[in-house]
């Protein structure tokens, strides 16, 4: 039996962290969160407005799911740090999903600003889960400045393009000893399973579930995919071969005494 995931000293039975963004309704989000089995979910911090409903907070309390505030939409370390401080005050958690983006079109992380913010937040006592590019060296640096988890993207946020550079995820895995969570780009269950097969400790996703035609069914699929990928990773896959390797006995067939195999 695989060990449970431990981030920042806290143990999780589920290795799927589901985000709450993009859900068509709170009722569907509620059912999807339950189907996903997640124990922690992301929220964003925004100005209170007339159409702001406090109900996401109430929903997570009701479901006993921990809240992981993010710094989505921040372009600088300073903005991200202030957002993290506000989230700590509002939600009474020192956990933060650090996300500092470089531009609106790709939403790709700004590595330099992310690293600066991560270092300051970690020094200030935050448990920092850092969203990052799939750059193994940057992942190692984020760990070195005190991040509790490093979260490389598979592809841009919401793109559903899957894991575009599996080799980089494997390389990052070999360099990073804190939990490695594949974050962003997941499109369907096989992407989540691949993340785990590559050695990730968990998967964070939102759009793949919340924007699926049937979010609740997809949430269940993701839960199973993460479990399957973890089992497969631990089970030790067979080596890849260029030619077939028969699994049935080669001898004892009828009428083959004089037959020769055709040349291939």
């Amino acid at each position: 039996m695989a060990k449970n995931l431990i981030i920042g000293g806290r143990e999780f039975q589920s290795r799927l962290i589901m985000g709450t963004g993009g859900a068509p309704s709170l009722q569907i989000l509620r059912e999807a969160l339950i189907a996903s089995g997640t124990e922690m979910t992301t929220v964003a911090m925004r100005r209170v407005s007339a159409d702001t409903h406090g109900s996401i907070f109430d929903l997570l309390k009701e479901l006993d799911i921990s809240v992981l505030p993010n710094t989505a939409g921040c372009y600088t370390a300073g903005e991200a740090i202030l957002t993290a401080q506000l989230a700590r005050e509002a939600l009474e958690t020192s956990w933060i999903k650090l996300e500092v983006i470089s531009n609106e079109e790709t939403l790709l992380p700004d590595g330099q600003e992310t690293l600066r913010a991560a270092e300051k937040l970690a020094l200030d006592g935050f448990t920092v889960l850092a969203y990052t590019n799939d750059d193994p060296a940057l992942g190692k640096r984020l760990q070195d400045v005190g991040c509790a988890a490093v979260m490389p993207l598979g592809a841009p946020i919401g793109s559903g393009l899957g894991i575009r550079n599996p080799h980089n995820i494997e390389l990052m895995r070999s360099l990073v000893t804190v939990p490695l969570l594949l974050d962003a780009g997941i499109g369907t269950a096989s992407d989540a399973a691949l993340a785990m097969e590559l050695g990730c400790d968990g998967v964070l996703l939102a759009s793949a579930v919340t924007r699926a035609a049937d979010p609740v069914a997809m949430a269940g699929a993701m839960r199973l995919a993460v479990e399957s990928g973890l089992l497969a990773h631990g089970a030790g896959r067979i080596p890849k071969r260029w030619r077939a390797y028969a699994s049935s006995p080669q001898s004892g067939l009828i009428g083959t005494d004089a037959r020769e195999s055709p040349e291939f």
């Binding site: 709450t20 993009g22 992301t42 911090m45 925004r46 209170v48 996401i56 509002a90």
Partner: peptide, 10 residues
Amino acid sequence: VDVLTAVQGG
């Protein structure tokens, strides 16, 4: 003055 709260996201 900014007054913030948690919303769905991420």
